[in-house]
Amino acid sequence: MPNIDWDQLKTAEQIAEEERRARVPAQISRAQGRAILGLRGLTPGVEAYIAQITDQEEAMWADLAWNHTSSWNRYGSPFLTKAATALGLTESALDEMFIAGEQITI
């Protein structure tokens, strides 16, 4: 009888999450990200979100992410998370945008 490591078992939700993350690029270039936002008509919404930030430190991080980074990370980016929430984007919409953005050649 095989030895079963019960700590390694995963729920259907965990498996689905891992499969979803495997399909989505973890990173795209800032140019690709801005291009896909522009193609989807979302650039004005992002700019409006950034303009309304009143906390100086948060505004600095948003400016760096929007204007000065070389790449955008799909997971773990506070700016991306906050901007997506402000735009009303779902996790699946963000995933789809990263997938589409990765296909853009500039």
Rank of each mutant, 00 (worst) to 15 (best):
W72Q: 00
L94P: 02
L9K: 14
T69H: 13
L64C: 08
V24E: 04
G33F: 14
D95E: 12
R23E: 11
I28P: 01
V46R: 00
D5W: 06
Q103S: 10
R34Q: 14
L64T: 14
L89H: 05
G76D: 12
E58W: 07
D95T: 06
A83G: 03
E19L: 11
M1D: 10
A51P: 06
A16H: 12
E47N: 05
S71T: 15
S77T: 12
G33C: 06
E19N: 10
T85A: 13
E57M: 11
L94D: 06
T81H: 07
N67F: 07
I53G: 09
N67D: 10
S70V: 12
A31R: 08
S92Y: 10
G88T: 10
E102S: 11
P25V: 04
L37Y: 07
P44C: 01
G33H: 04
L87K: 09
P78H: 09
V46W: 00
E19M: 10
A65K: 09
V24R: 04
L87M: 14
M97C: 09
R30F: 12
W6G: 03
D5N: 14
R34F: 03
S29W: 03
T90Q: 06
N67T: 07
A59F: 08
A22R: 12
I53T: 09
A100D: 14
N3E: 11
G101K: 00
K10F: 02
Q52N: 12
G45I: 00
E102F: 07
L94A: 04
M97Q: 11
L87C: 07
T11K: 08
G88D: 12
P2M: 11
R20T: 03
E57H: 15
L42R: 05
I106R: 12
G101S: 05
G33R: 01
E58S: 15
S92P: 02
W6M: 11
P44A: 05
F98L: 09
I99T: 08
L42Q: 05
A100R: 10
R34I: 03
T81L: 13
R40V: 03
E47K: 08
T85P: 02
P44S: 06
L39F: 07
T81D: 13
E91Q: 05
I4P: 04
T90F: 03
L37S: 03
Y49Q: 00
A84K: 03
E13D: 14
I36K: 00
A59G: 09
N3S: 03
I104V: 04
T54Y: 01
A35P: 00
T81A: 14
M97E: 09
E17G: 04
L94Y: 06
A48E: 10
G33W: 13
L39N: 15
F98D: 02
T105Q: 15
Q52D: 13
A86L: 01
N73M: 05
T90Y: 07
G38P: 02
W72S: 00
Q32T: 01
T11R: 09
T43H: 04
Q14V: 01
E13R: 12
K82G: 03
A93N: 06
I106A: 14
G101I: 01
V46D: 00
W66F: 05
E17S: 15
A93I: 01
S71D: 09
R20D: 10
I99C: 02
L37G: 02
T105V: 11
L94V: 14
Y49N: 00
A93K: 08
